[in-house]
Computed example of a mutant assay.
Amino acid sequence: MRSRLYALAAGNFAIGTGMFVTAGLLASISADLGVSRSAAGQLMTVFALAYAVLSPVLAALTANMSRRTLLLLAMAVFTAGSALAALAPTYPLVLLTRVVAAAGAAMFTPTSSAVASALSSPERRGRALALVMGGLTVSSALGVPLGTWLGDAVSWRATLWAVAGLGVLGLIGVAALVPDVRIAASRRLSERLQPLRDRRVVAVLVTQLLVFATGFTAYTYIGSLLDLPLPAVLWAWGLGGVAGNMLGGRLTDAYGPRRMVFTGMTAVLVFMALIPVANLALPVALVWGFLWGASGWMVAPAQQFRTVAAVPGNVSIGLGLLASAQYLGLVVAGLAGGVALEAYGRIGVVVLAVAIGVVALVFTLATYRPALSPERESIPA
């Protein structure tokens, strides 16, 4: 069983590395393609936008397909998109290849969670999901720093070839280890969007969008905000993300999702304001990066908890919408952060990240009440 889950996690590791690594490659991408760093940052924006838009559409179109076949197709598409990006000679063509890679990711990641859930017993389902999705968080701790280092040492194209290689390994793992699974799913897009009629669900999704917009406004352009060795800072952030994701689940079970959502959001807001302090020295930046990553990813399990509570009859669809909101947050971060960087430099990006964080906190305070959550919210302080 664990070998099957590791194969799915390996696919998510490749996808996470391929998406997030561009944040550490902006300087080499901009120099090679003759565009500004803010324009280079839109490679992540385009990937996130394509993922958010294509995820529900492709899920409906492939509803009757065997999940194993879909996983193989998804990883093949992602790998092809990454390889084409490494070959693309111009900026517009690189953007187009990011859409191709995102289409593969949009099919693979939600399907890997559904397959992990189907293959595991109810009492081990949470751990199975954590293992499979852990590929994404581990990619931020391992794949992204190594990819950034490779990009600095060789070229950003070498990094994307390495991502394509990871995709091939994920494809082989799925082909060798994951069995054929069929999961009942609706082919009607309207049914997949039905939870959006519930204001509780919309509130959760908007919070998710704003939380990720806050953190990734800085993360997308981190190379322009710090004058320190970037791979080391990204490594610290990634390690913090892994720790925060693991700890966040336990703390959510212990103290309830509401407390964890507000604790994590407040901490992220503080760390955004401390970016100039982090830039003073590498040891300071490493501690800052770890705590920022931990506090940001600590919110994720609590938000998943909120989603499951809001749509108990459509959990997979609800979590799919949560992922789309997350990636839309990255779109906002990439676009708004790029404008701020061009107009006001690094201080503009910092101010923008803090401003979005304030909006996120105020919105969530206004919309997230204990009465809207299940019994864990009633745990006394």
Rank of each mutant, 00 (worst) to 15 (best):
M1R: 11
R4T: 10
L5T: 07
A7R: 04
A10S: 08
V21D: 01
V21K: 01
I29P: 00
A31H: 13
Q42A: 02
L43N: 05
F47L: 03
F47Y: 15
A48F: 14
L49A: 15
A50E: 09
S55W: 01
V57T: 01
A60V: 03
N64P: 00
M75Y: 05
A76H: 13
V77P: 07
L84D: 10
A88S: 15
V94E: 03
A101T: 13
A103P: 12
P110I: 14
E123F: 01
V132S: 05
L142H: 06
G143F: 09
G143H: 06
P145Y: 03
L146I: 14
D152R: 01
A153D: 10
L160P: 07
L160G: 04
W161T: 12
W161M: 14
W161D: 08
W161Y: 11
G170Y: 12
A176W: 04
V181E: 03
A184K: 05
A185G: 02
S186K: 07
L193A: 15
Q194G: 00
D198I: 01
L209F: 07
V211R: 01
I222L: 08
S224I: 04
D227G: 13
P231C: 09
L239A: 03
V242E: 01
G244T: 02
G249H: 12
R250F: 05
T252S: 14
G256L: 10
A273Q: 12
P276I: 10
N279S: 13
A281E: 04
A285H: 11
L286H: 11
S295C: 04
V299L: 08
F305R: 15
V308I: 14
V315M: 03
V315F: 06
I317E: 05
I317P: 00
S324L: 03
L330F: 08
L330G: 07
V331N: 13
G334D: 09
E342R: 09
V351M: 11
G357L: 03
A360R: 03
T364E: 05
T367F: 04
R369Q: 12
R376H: 02
